[in-house]
Simulated scan of single mutants.
Amino acid sequence: MTTVSTSAVPSNAECRATLTDGRTLTITASRRPRANRADVKCTVPNAPAIAEHMQQVVRLARHTEPRLDSRDQVVLSMDITPSATERDWELAAVLADRMVRGLHPARPGMITTAQGHSDAWHTGRVTGAVRTTAPGDGEGTLQITHLGALLGHADPSAAISTVRAWFPLHSGGINDTLGWVEVSVFPLEAPAATEEDSIAVPGLDLTAQQEVKQTLTAARHFDGKGLSRWRSVVRFGQPRFQGGSYQLALVMADRLARGREFVPRGRIIASGCSSAWHAGRVDTVDGRESKLELIFNQVNSGDRVLLPKDWQDHLPPGFAAGLREKGASLACIDKIGMI
């Protein structure tokens, strides 16, 4: 196995991007011992929202890296502030992050300029170009559609397993619907030091992120083959919600993505939480009547509906038969892995 010596890894790196008004933006990345700080920190002059977006881009782009090393913190900064709508600096941020960690070549005197953005950084997909000017090598430009192309590799998205599951978003109004949670997993070359470091949950507040990470960590502990083996990205179609009834859908999407469950013909639709995911237990949730009505109205042929065991004796008359008539199946469960 080839490793990068510590002497070959720079403590600082720069990557440039050209803004639409012609100005040159420089993103500087520096590396320092993490010391219980965040893995990535970003600063942009007078633009905290752009800094937060840059942090999310960098974290998601790391998803397709086969090794997870969280010993260092990478700090990224912009020297000028782009407009809120500009995004072609995203690839430059990703490259600066990789350069300072020794994952992308950066020789002394080399100038790297990158233009590109992505709506799916966690898959490694990007539309962009990288231009380098290096002493003795002149100038070269590389057009890329995925991050693997930077090193002449195959598209990394082929190694990513992504699954969605649905859960009822209920607030008692006309906007009630089935929301989705999506889990993408990428196999790690070496075990992660901590499971939570390997899970990214963009778009949620810190409390909700922590709940998602703890749910996945505990549920993977139950199946005995999930811990420390995956990088994971969890995304929600609607990031604004309350309560924990999404948890069963999250756990099922994760188990399907890791090959721990049979894939249904349609969607997995689930409602349930747990105070003991490490034991595989499924607990009941509030809002039973409204959620059952919502599920019944939106279920399609091939869908698999999973509900807490406690709901089984309280289903409306004809509920199960109605689902069967629509071509859907139903299971009321008190434990995952027995579905």
Results as ranks from 00 to 15, higher is better:
R258P: 04
V282A: 00
I268E: 12
R255E: 07
V263H: 11
S271R: 02
R260C: 07
V282L: 00
R255Y: 11
W277F: 06
V263D: 08
E261N: 13
R265P: 02
I269Y: 03
G244A: 08
R267E: 09
G266V: 07
A257M: 15
L256G: 14
A279R: 06
S274C: 12
T284Y: 06
R260H: 12
R255P: 05
H278D: 05
G259D: 09
Y246D: 04
I268C: 10
G266D: 09
T284F: 04
A270T: 13
P264M: 05
A276R: 13
G259C: 10
P264S: 07
R281D: 01
L248S: 06
Q247I: 07
S271N: 05
H278K: 05
T284M: 11
R281A: 00
D283M: 02
C273P: 09
H278F: 04
M252N: 12
R258M: 13
R260K: 12
S271P: 02
V263W: 09
F262K: 15
G272A: 06
A253F: 08
I268M: 09
G280F: 01
A249G: 11
R260M: 10
V251P: 00
A253P: 09
A270D: 08
L256E: 15
R267S: 11
M252P: 01
R258D: 05
G280V: 01
V251G: 01
A249F: 10
S274P: 05
S274E: 02
A257Q: 14
I268F: 13
Y246I: 02
A270S: 08
W277E: 00
G259I: 12
L248R: 08
A249Y: 08
L250N: 06
Y246K: 03
A276I: 02
V263A: 15
A270H: 10
Y246C: 03
L256C: 11
S271E: 08
W277G: 00
A257F: 13
A279V: 02
R260Q: 10
A270E: 07
R265W: 06
A279G: 09
Y246F: 10
Q247K: 14
I268S: 06
A276K: 11
L256Q: 12
H278N: 11
F262H: 15
D254Y: 08
L256D: 13
R281H: 01
D254T: 14
Y246L: 02
I268K: 04
V263T: 15
P264F: 05
